[in-house]
Design a protein around this nucleic acid. Structure first.
Lengths: 342, 342
DNA sequence: CCAATTGTCGTAAACGTTTACGAGATTTGA
DNA sequence: TCAAATCTCGTAAACGTTTACGACAATTGG
């Protein structure tokens, strides 16, 4: 491999000058800089990243940890790819690269994060799937690694976070149900400790209470994420008596499984039961299309990227926002899955 | 940060001994090894990855590049997450980590790969979305970086590849259509140069020819991947005269958009038109469920991981398979979307 | 014309590891 | 008992960069 040393020897100048030339430092003659640049081009020189980051004390990469759920499914795939896109546009402005750290279902997320951080690939970290009790936050804080979470936690440590306004989603969906006459309202929640489940649960319960209704325990349906989870919810619903006339799903991709499960029992979504969920590409094309709450995912990614940069010492002058805690308002889209009165 | 130097000073031994102790080298007293290990634990020592990989000449990570398609959608999300899982199980056996390099739709994949490789994060590379003419392959070969492709290419450079047997899928699907009496058969293909499109196209054409049929140009429908692409295909279909009675989709996630598009024109999939596609989680839950061809994605990931290791010098003794080129046979599942005779 | 400033570059240390080499101490074998 | 073998460890170089420092020459200002 051709390193800075060979370049310098080939040009009969010192390696220090070569380095300065390549890095755009001012104290180098414009002629020699050009000579260095063209020689680097010709000889195919590319800086060795290990040497560079050893000396610089930074790698130039930030990580984004996501988790694959059970059943070989990622929770809301286009959700994350769109968020990634937003993060990347921010980071690329500063020559930082985003690498995705995908924790598979078989691995413990806390151990996985630990391993990846200790690997030392990244100068900063974004984590998602934030749980109500999330040990990753304490770990990152103890390592002094700049980080941001996508989602609040009860165990957060003064870090910046960006989140979706799940309380509003819960409240708005329930109010819409109630205004159409629904009284037997169900909610589909995750099985694990992921915080959005707690947030939506609380909001739904409070809103129903405000309208003189109670969320009965049997209408609180838990399932793993994904299509199969939705299918399981359908099987729970058919056993309920009285049967709920409306359901709000916390997971973005479970609606399609729910539809099928209901139809197998002769229950037609959008006619026999109102369904509301969160936005994703597939649910827009289902029949009936889902009434849904979405988010500007790309903007959300941009906010995440900027919040992270604001906590990285090297970029704090450019992003002097300090700690950011922001919930993102939901965007409502009326579909065909709940447009009937009971 | 606590480095090997502080550890050594704290224990009153040389840094060389500390390093040997931590790395399990034989020429170190068992007592001192234990002292080093416990001290490392207590002081929270973690090896600096930059220093280590600079010296070792390897990073201990391999990259897997995937691309997000248009419309903020990844082609077959659970497809990749499952493949990742397989790759990871192989790599983890050797303390190698997998990092996902996600090229967003707005970026040129060739430039993106170049950037990431030159970044120097990885000791090896897996690339997907292989095109019939794919400059990434020549680049990787020229950099001498060990790599494997998921998918064949017309421009491959003697590297190992793993692929799905798209020819068989095309042949089997068409033969099934024909045996049910279909003669007006359409095929949904990608708009870009991704090689699976060419492979399926050729197989479909050849099979029809063998049965005395021809694939008319108007029945060759191109669309971007994802649900929206399927919806666009439906809009193309309704304009065709004669209207095809069967369609094979090359994309895993477009069926749901196709269903909706057809239904909006009163065409009922599974009754008025037979639909066959590739397996994915959502299509199993659609109504009617899709007749589909799948692959053991996890095994495919394992094969990818092993093929990569076989091309990495440090692991060639353990994986002496040399260059691997292997197509994976499709697994057929009969759904409800094509079980009628015309 | 001389001192001060500026422009350009080489020197060498430093980042945190790993490892070849050799030295000293201890053990082994006959 | 002595040479040889073995065990244990320290020394120092090396991986490829970046950068503080100083040297020297050229330019500037009065």
């Amino acid at each position: 491999m051709v390193g800075i040393k060979r370049l310098a020897h080939h040009l009969n100048i010192s390696i220090g000058t070569v380095s300065r030339a390549l890095n755009g430092k001012p104290d180098v003659n414009e002629d020699t800089r050009q000579r260095v640049l063209t020689a680097a081009q010709e000889m195919g020189y590319e800086a060795n990243q290990s040497g560079r980051s050893l000396r610089r004390g930074a790698t130039g990469a930030v990580g984004f940890m996501v988790q694959t759920g059970p059943q070989f499914n990622v929770q809301g795939d286009n959700f994350f790819t769109t968020v990634f896109d937003g993060v990347q546009t921010v980071l690329n402005r500063h020559h930082l690269d985003l690498i995705v750290l995908l924790c598979s279902a078989s691995e413990d997320p806390d151990q996985y994060l630990r391993r990846m951080v200790l690997r030392g690939f990244v100068d900063g970290m974004i984590i998602s799937h934030t749980r109500r009790i999330d040990p990753r936050i304490a770990f990152l804080a103890s390592r002094q690694l700049p980080f941001v979470t996508l989602g609040r936690s009860n165990t957060d440590a003064g870090q910046s976070w960006i989140d979706i306004d799940f309380e509003s989603i819960g409240r708005l969906a329930v109010e819409r149900f109630i205004s159409r006459g629904h009284r037997e309202i169900a909610i589909g929640l995750p099985v694990d400790d992921i915080n959005l489940g707690h947030l939506m649960h609380a909001a739904v319960e409070a809103t129903m209470l405000k309208h003189g209704l109670t969320l009965s325990a049997q209408n609180l349906l838990r399932s793993p994420p994904g299509e199969l989870g939705g299918y399981e919810i359908a099987n729970q619903i058919v056993r309920l008596n009285p049967r709920p006339t409306a359901i709000l799903l916390s997971d973005e991709s479970s609606a399609i499984g729910l539809y099928r499960g209901l139809l197998e029992h002769g229950i037609v979504p959008g006619r026999d039961i109102a369904v509301t969920g969160r936005d994703s590409l597939p649910v827009r094309f289902m029949v009936p299309s889902l009434t849904r709450y979405g988010q500007p995912l790309r903007d959300l990614g941009i906010a995440l990227g900027e919040a992270l940069l604001a906590t990285m010492p090297a970029y704090q002058k450019l992003y002097p926002t300090g700690i950011v805690r922001r919930v993102w308002p939901p965007m409502f889209t009326e579909g065909e899955s709940d447009v009937f009165d009971v």
